[in-house]
Computed example of a mutant assay.
Amino acid sequence: MQYQLVAHMAAGLEALVARELQALGYKTRNENGKVFFEGDETAIAKANVWLRTADRVKIVLGQFKVTTFDELFEGVKALPWDHYLPMDAAFPVAGRSIRSILHSEPDVQAITKKAIVNKLSEVYHRRGRLPETGATYPLEVSILKDVATLTIDTTGSSLFKRGYRVAKGDAPLKENFAAALVMLTNWHPDMPFVDPTTGSGTLPIEAALIGHNIAPGMLRHFAFEDFRFMDPKVLQAVKDEAMDQADWDIKLDIQGYDINQEMITIAQENAKQAGLLNDITFKQLAAKDFKTDKPRGVIVANPPYGKRLGELDAARKLYREMGQTYAALPGWSKYILTADLGFEKVYGSKATKRRKLYNGALRTDYYQYWAQRTPRK
């Protein structure tokens, strides 16, 4: 069966997710925070297992215009819910409404739930309440500019939860956002990769997953595994194929440094959980003390932003030290994420390119300093 599917992601990452889906063989259409594509059960499994930068993958059941609750009820009831939900299905309904006449989200949610119950009760000849004792099918009704979209979430816990992070620091990067930061650079697996403020090690671990072509969803479970209409053999086949595509032989040069030894220990534990401890060198080192005789490489940093009271001076001291240290590395590209709009002045030079990204709800800028061109060996 062919499904209309949609991948959700943080604003600004649509092109990355579209590129990932296209690499899997699917045609895409982008909207703000969404990438639409079509596919069968294998597409659902592949997207969940392989997408590095998306948050979740949903099945689009229907879209229609609504301006009254009667229209919402009838539109929802007309959808083929019995094709997806068995009689004992648990189906929590989340509701959202943006710039629409039907602006009360609790009412939108309640009407949608009532319409689905009504439809399933008729189909299954069921009197009274449905049991909802079976597998969970997370549903959402989203109304944007008076157009309702009904979806089933196939992912469950967000795709950023890879399953390897057993410990973290104060403000860890989400795994999918870290993967996006790596994929927005000019890094290739044959180049050195350095994270000077590694924290819990997420950036180096995601770089290693990319370097080895390891599917990020290999270690985790998904909501669709319990869906009645999904053949359980599909996911296993996709994971087996992904295992065959991994390149375990490539030698990676990936370093993660942090001034805090406790964070280095945490990073090592996470890398061990991911099966990548031997691919990454973690070491206690201040950013200002980094030295290398390698002529080229890539530095990706997510240093403290100095957003908390009294921390801005310390953050800017670090930016200044980075600028002075990295000035001696003209053959290296540097990519630094921060919410401090005064970063370039403190760092000491203007970025080659600056990209706006959202780290959660926080507006940040990705400052890119491209390396001077040198011949590649």
Results as ranks from 00 to 15, higher is better:
G348V: 10
I336F: 09
A301R: 02
N260S: 10
Y326R: 13
L318I: 07
L312Y: 02
D289E: 08
I280R: 02
L337I: 06
I259G: 12
D313A: 13
A286E: 12
Q273F: 08
G360V: 01
Q284P: 01
D293R: 10
A287G: 02
A274K: 00
E262T: 13
G306F: 10
L318C: 03
E344H: 06
K356W: 01
G331T: 08
P303Y: 05
P303F: 03
N302H: 07
A315V: 04
G342M: 05
A361K: 15
L362N: 08
N260K: 12
P330D: 05
K294S: 09
M263L: 10
Y326C: 10
I264Q: 04
Y347I: 09
Q284N: 06
K356M: 13
L309S: 11
L329G: 00
P303L: 04
T265Y: 07
N278C: 15
Y347K: 14
A301T: 05
V300H: 04
F343H: 01
G331H: 07
K291A: 12
Y319G: 08
P304R: 05
A274H: 00
S333F: 00
F282R: 02
D289P: 00
L277M: 05
K350G: 01
Y257R: 00
G342H: 01
G331C: 11
G275K: 05
Q273T: 15
K353Q: 14
P295G: 09
D258I: 06
V298D: 12
I266E: 02
L362E: 02
R355M: 11
R355L: 14
L341E: 15
I264G: 01
A328V: 09
Q324P: 00
K307E: 14
A274E: 03
K294P: 02
K283S: 11
N278H: 15
A301W: 01
E321Y: 04
L362G: 09
A267Y: 13
G275Q: 04
R296V: 09
G331R: 07
A286G: 15
K353C: 06
G306D: 10
L276H: 04
A351H: 06
G348M: 09
P303K: 03
E311S: 13
N270A: 07
E311C: 03
A271N: 10
T281K: 09
V298K: 05
R296D: 07
K283C: 13
E262Y: 09
E269H: 12
Q324E: 12
R316V: 11
Y347E: 10
G275C: 05
F343G: 01
